[in-house]
Amino acid sequence: MTRPKFSWLGLVAVCVLIGTVLPFLVIIPSSFTSGAYLTFPPQGFSLEWYARILDRPEFVHAFGFSLQLASVTAVLATIIGTLAAIAMSKYSFPGKAAVNGALLSPLVLPALILGIALLMLFSRIGIAGTFIGLLLAHLLITVPFVIRLVLTGLSGFDYNIEKAASILGASPLRVFWTVTIPLIKPAIFSGGIFAFLVSFDNVTISLFLVSNKQTTLPIVIFNYIQDSLDPMIAAVSTIVIVVSLVPIVLIERFYGLSKLFGLSERSETP
């Protein structure tokens, strides 16, 4: 292995990367300030602003609502997406390429347009501003991710193993649970976690579908910071960052973030 040596390229790259994490470097320390105003660098250290969140029921309620929405979205998206991915990997049928393209297409359209289309449909059928409306919208944008991830996980899958199990007398359901699922568990697991993350952090679609009572945490933050900035909102933001970081670390451990984003992990050494 080569010893690390100074390079201008590395220096420039590190500066740019510091720029991209700058928002976090500013928000997180400021949330622990003991001063009355939002300043950077913060003054002193206290957890006072975290305690203050508890006095604001709208934040507490939205946090619970977001967690609930993201969890239900993750579970349902994982089930729907995994089933679809298995159908497409295991069988060949007429129009398969078209079905595959159609299932991934919600990710191609701008969230702005999806949000408007769903707002119009949901207000017509009376589920705008409800949990079920938000759930359907979040499923639409998370199922494609699960399908893509599970399809990748299944790409090297040897279906002879399933045949072997059924020859040995296992029922189709048993084959599915004890043979197929365990072999693609990392992909399914990462798909679900990623669905949680996408749902928990979504603003662009949620903004069209929330109501005063049923609203998510990022939307409450969005509305709040248009009027005022204080250390309490930095504390709320820090909590969102931490809740987002947990799934990210889990995906990195079980699957690999670069694989998720289509970068091969292979090293270029010949």
């Binding site: 991209t20 700058l22 928002p23 933050i221 900035l229």
Partner: peptide, 26 residues
């Protein structure tokens, strides 16, 4: 390479509202 990839991707996975809030402070 692993660390850089991680640092590139992670901020992008946190809500745009939070990152914009950071820039309001900067």
């Amino acid at each position: 390479r692993g660390v850089i990839t991680f640092v590139v991707i992670v901020p992008h996975l946190v809500s745009v509202v939070i990152r914009n809030f950071g820039w309001l402070m900067v």
